[in-house]
Write a protein that binds this DNA or RNA. Structure first.
Length: 506
RNA sequence: GGCGCAUUGGUGUAGUUGGUUAACACGCUGCCCUCUCAAGGCAGAGAUCACGGGUUCGAGUCCCGUAUGCGCUACCA
């Protein structure tokens, strides 16, 4: 039987990076085994589910390159099937109607309430399965239901025994029945609940391997019981270690904001392949230890056996813009930007420049060669795609900002530059042909004649031409920018020095 | 409270059946290169493998306990 896996997010917000990793692992497993990767949107919580969230999930997956097979399944569309299955279990006496009135719960304190109730049970030694309706006669139950009394449907967990299943990551798992409450399958308003819905849908979709977050590990026992009650084959399970915040707490939007959202990485200039590569290394490592892996290598090397069991900390520093996300992710992105095939990089740069009105159609045409050369030159020290429009702006537009620190370090520091730079412009204007080599020869000769260090002129030029204190080899920059623009920008320097004199800070 | 899972340098990980100085990547420090900053090269700091007991000639690797963290324990997903 061929392998079928699925990613089943609930559309209650942006795509969380933990969820994105689950999607990735499922996808990789399908690719590796020649199986199918399906997408199911678990939108049964109508209050919290939004279409916008569904869109963002699909977008995020597309961005990561995770294409799914077959049609998307919307869980809400299957509610009738879920209900029918629950009623069938009632008929078979594997589930029962619970006529206990629904208890009101306060959303904000549910977690706490649940824990307290559980504590009370364990302290008092009462069995959570004790329920006056559990053993109601069929006639009585049918009668009350027919009379219109509201009821929830609960699965009848046997009194004695235990469940067990083999988790592909966490190994053999066991749980006493006495630790499992008779779980509610259907709410008293007829709404099917999570555990029922997943199981029915997974059966329906013929899922063979359920790969998901570890937060579902203990609940899996309930699901195993359901599969058995339904007479279905229990799939294989593989639970993934959780991704934690730096304080080893839960990584959540409420507390940590946009770092946990996949779209943030797209919006802040990540190369999809880089982020995908980084994500793959959270909780998994290839056998040979190689960390930069192409998609093909990931697909080939991925295996459930190498997923480990301890949670991974996603390392970032809140309130520090320089370390806004995991440094290794940032490093990996830079690595991809400077080493990936330039043809693959260009479309991303094009998007970035377009978004900032820096793109000219000639770049795809007459100026293609120039563009390739320029990108190849500047990408060497960029970390994100954003850098192309920020630090790299001066390469694509005459309208760029000057970095203040660069101006004071490379321009204002030496008053001689006021006169030297325009003079250098004159010399460069006479240089023919104008290439990196000839520009270098001109500049060095000029420096020698004036008795100044070449570095002074080089650094001053860099700031005049690019607005930056750092950047590629200056002579390459001269050539890239061309004679005309280089000369113009060197001459435009005068205002800097005028302003400097007015302020009297020479 | 109960049950479950985890615990290797700051972070991500390797250490498959117990056996030399615990390996790699990111980050950090210094040096080289150099027109700056990266990249690259070289060197280095940083882990008594959570702690305490055992088993053994020998344990990060096996056993027990403790601690800490996380998860689950809903008519949420």
């Amino acid at each position: 039987m061929s392998i079928r896996v699925r990613f089943a997010p609930s559309p209650t917000g942006y795509l969380h990076i933990g969820a994105a990793r689950s999607a990735l692992f499922n996808w990789l497993y399908a690719q590796k085994t020649g199986g199918k990767f399906l997408l199911r949107i678990e939108d049964t919580d109508l209050q919290r589910s939004t279409e916008e969230s569904t869109r963002s999930i699909i977008e995020g997956m597309k961005w990561l390159g995770l294409d799914y097979d077959e049609e998307i399944v919307f869980q809400s569309a299957n509610a009738d099937k879920h209900r029918a299955a629950a009623y069938k279990l009632v008929d078979e006496a594997k589930a029962y109607r619970d006529f206990t009135p629904k208890a009101e719960r306060d959303d904000a304190t549910v977690k706490q309430g649940v824990a307290e109730r559980a504590r009370a049970h364990s302290e008092a030694g009462t069995d959570p399965r004790d329920n006056p309706y559990r053993d109601l006669t069929k006639a009585e139950s049918d009668h009350r239901a027919a009379a219109g009394e509201a009821f929830a449907v609960r699965l009848k967990i046997p009194r004695q025994g235990k469940t067990h299943f083999e988790d592909l990551v966490f190994g053999p798992q066991e749980r006493e029945y006495s630790e499992i409450e008779d779980l509610v399958l259907l709410r008293s308003d007829g709404h099917p609940l999570y555990n029922l819905s997943v199981v029915i849908d997974d059966i329906e979709m013929r899922i063979t391997h359920v790969i998901r977050g570890q937060d579902h590990l203990t609940n899996t026992h309930k699901q195993v019981l359901l599969y058995e009650a339904l007479g279905a084959v229990v799939p294989q399970f593989a639970h993934l270690p959780l991704i934690l915040a730096p304080n080893k707490g839960k990584l959540s939007k409420r507390k940590h904001g946009e770092v946990v959202s996949l779209t943030t990485y797209r919006d802040r200039g990540f190369v999809p392949a880089a982020f995908r590569n980084f994500l793959a290394l959270l909780g998994w490592a290839p056998a040979d230890g190689k960390e930069i892996l192409t998609l093909e290598e990931l697909m080939e090397q991925f295996s459930l056996e190498h997923i480990h069991r301890s949670p991974a900390v996603f390392n970032f520093q809140e309130n520090d813009p320089r370390h806004w996300t995991d440094e290794k992710a940032l490093w990996m992105n830079a690595e991809y930007i400077r080493t990936m095939a330039i043809d693959q990089l260009i479309p991303m740069v094009r998007n970035e420049l377009r978004a900032n009105k820096l793109w000219r159609e000639e770049y795809d045409d007459d100026d293609r060669e120039w563009l390739v050369k320029t990108i190849d030159l500047i990408r060497q020290r960029f970390f994100t795609l954003k850098d192309f429009s920020a630090q790299g702006r001066a390469y694509f537009s005459d309208d760029f900002d000057f970095d203040e620190a660069a101006v004071s370090k490379n321009l204002k520091k030496d008053p001689q530059l006021r006169e030297l730079l325009p003079a250098l412009a004159d010399a460069l204007e006479q240089t023919d042909p104008f290439t990196a080599e000839s520009a270098e020869a001109t500049l060095r000769k000029f420096a020698e004649e004036r008795g100044v260090k070449a570095g002074l002129l080089i650094n001053g030029s860099r700031t005049m031409l690019t607005g930056q204190a750092v950047g590629p080899s200056m002579f390459e920059v001269f050539e890239i920018l061309g004679q005309k623009r280089s000369v113009e920008r060197l001459r435009s320097g005068v205002p800097w020095f005028d302003a400097m004199n007015e302020l009297g800070d020479v």
